[in-house]
Amino acid sequence: MTALPSAATRPAGGPGGERRGRLRLHHPLTPYALCAPYVLLLTAFVLVPAVWGIWISLHDWDFLLPYKPFVGAQNYANLFDPSSIVFGDFWNGMKNTAIFTVASVPFLVVIPFLVALLLNRHFPARTFFRAMIFAPFVLGIAVIGVLFKYLLNTQFGLINAFLDAVGLPPVAWLETQPAVWIALVGVTVWWTMGFNTVIYLAGLQSLPEEHYEAAELDGAGAWGKLRHITVPGLRMVMIFVVTTTILASANMFGQSYLLTSGGPGDSTRTAIMVMTEEGLRRFKMGSASAMSYLLALFLAVISIANFFLMRERKS
């Protein structure tokens, strides 16, 4: 190990700075060439569709009809006009998305954190439990949908059979509110908590052991170590987890599409479901694009706010 010249032993920057220019072994365009594949993919699959979508949202757009009249901002104006056809559906979808996000994100942030703390300890079969916690996440939403349709069935489902066994009345998990939201949040937490758990675990393992030893010397107990070392040390990880979880929850589609078809009534029809219906079933892609840009705007604002709220404060 020591025989190898390691990059860390060499002084970075400073005196090495001027030598770097002379010793450069690559062509000036090499960095750009290395970035090119990514930039190309980003352009083809993110930038172009994003800008193209704005263009679509300014039209009455059905990709198969030769006539795609330019309507200016009409598709956006409709979303704010209570007398338009889409107004009710869209804002009902946004409301349902907000309900689901507010109800699911706290669980998806806190439970994986606690599970990660447990899985970070030393105990027999730890790797097995780590794998088990992550396992549901690798399943597709179609599998989850079929699975829970059986489990949550009001009359024939396993969950109500358990409730019955302990003397509780059956719950119409997919037919009545608020049971449906509880079911959808529960399914989502079971399905996706493994992802956040793994992120937290990685964060926990990067916390230096010396900090805990120092805290112990200062007389900190388990709670003190958690509050003063673990949580502050995971701040950036938490920002990442909260942001991605909000975005994932706000994009909820499969759970209610497969389990409730948006019902009862339209109480679990999320914003994405409304857009799918509008754009891919009624083929009003301009209107659907406008909806998705408005949702994206909301999510951008929330993500930025989230970042500022959770950033390190210098006091």
């Binding site: 352009t43 930038l47 172009v48 569709p49 800008v51 193209w52 263009w55 990709f63 198969l64």
Partner: peptide, 21 residues
Amino acid sequence: LLGGVAAVAAGAGLAACQPGS
């Protein structure tokens, strides 16, 4: 109306869609 990259991208998108429709 659009920025440089955006305009090129939109143009590319349009061109790409041309044969499609």
